[in-house]
């Protein structure tokens, strides 16, 4: 089946990000397709590449990044949530004259239309927050 997942919570503040990650891994194990990951609200922090996590803790952002890159998954952070939370790609960094880039290379910034598109074109859309 074609699944899309929406993640509303930041990692470490809530268990939901880890639940979503576990669910996504299990989807792939069972041979389902992930049509899109959509990070919304505080969920955009899951796509930060600037997090440093101590070795005895799960590095959730890094696990998302590997999952997305290795399986070539379409991963989107909501533009209106991301920019105000400092989740910035090269394009936005240049446009706003910022010094840094924080968005993982495996995700892109896009609008809420991508969430609506996912709700139309997936068999199941599952929210985690």
């Amino acid at each position: 089946m074609k699944f899309s997942l929406v993640v509303y919570s930041a990692p470490y503040s809530s268990q939901s990000a880890a639940t979503a990650l576990h669910f996504a891994q299990q989807l792939l194990i069972q041979g389902h397709e992930i049509y899109r990951l959509f990070f919304f609200g505080d969920g955009v922090h899951n796509a930060s590449k600037l997090a440093v996590v101590s070795q005895d803790e799960t590095h959730i952002q890094q696990q998302w990044d590997s999952l997305i890159a290795e399986n070539n998954i379409d991963s989107v952070v909501c533009v209106s949530s991301a920019l105000k939370r400092g989740i910035i790609n090269l394009e936005e960094s240049n446009r706003h004259d910022l010094e840094s880039i924080s968005l993982s290379d495996s995700s892109e910034i896009a609008g809420l239309g991508q969430l609506i598109d996912a709700s139309i074109n997936s068999d199941r859309l599952v929210n985690f927050g």
Partner: peptide, 10 residues
């Protein structure tokens, strides 16, 4: 378990 969670979603 998570495997069954996925199945239940289907």
């Amino acid at each position: 378990d998570y495997a069954r969670f996925v199945q239940l979603s289907c």
